[in-house]
């Protein structure tokens, strides 16, 4: 299946969860904000939500400093 990942098409295996995808990409869920189909997903739900063909996912990585 194909999803839109940060604005670009990306091929993924069926029924992968957002958490599994973040793990594959070695992204620390404590430092990213995830928007799935235009809704911001809280950390607790990353493992529950499975991606489907045509989904839109934005992963915004934050760095420290302010």
């Amino acid at each position: 299946m194909e999803i839109s990942f940060n604005g670009k098409p990306r091929e993924l295996p069926q029924s992968i969860s957002i958490q599994e995808l973040l793990d594959q990409l070695q992204l620390d869920c404590l430092q990213v904000v995830v928007e799935h189909n235009r809704n911001i997903v809280t950390r607790q739900r990353l493992a529950e939500i499975h991606l489907h063909h045509g989904d839109t996912l934005e992963v915004i990585h934050f760095v420290g400093g302010g």
Binding site: L30, V33, I40, V41, R43, F62, V63, G64, G65
Partner: peptide, 11 residues
């Protein structure tokens, strides 16, 4: 200041 805090706030 901290990335984790930034994410907590947005979520």
């Amino acid at each position: 200041d901290l990335a984790e805090q930034k994410v907590m706030l947005v979520e």
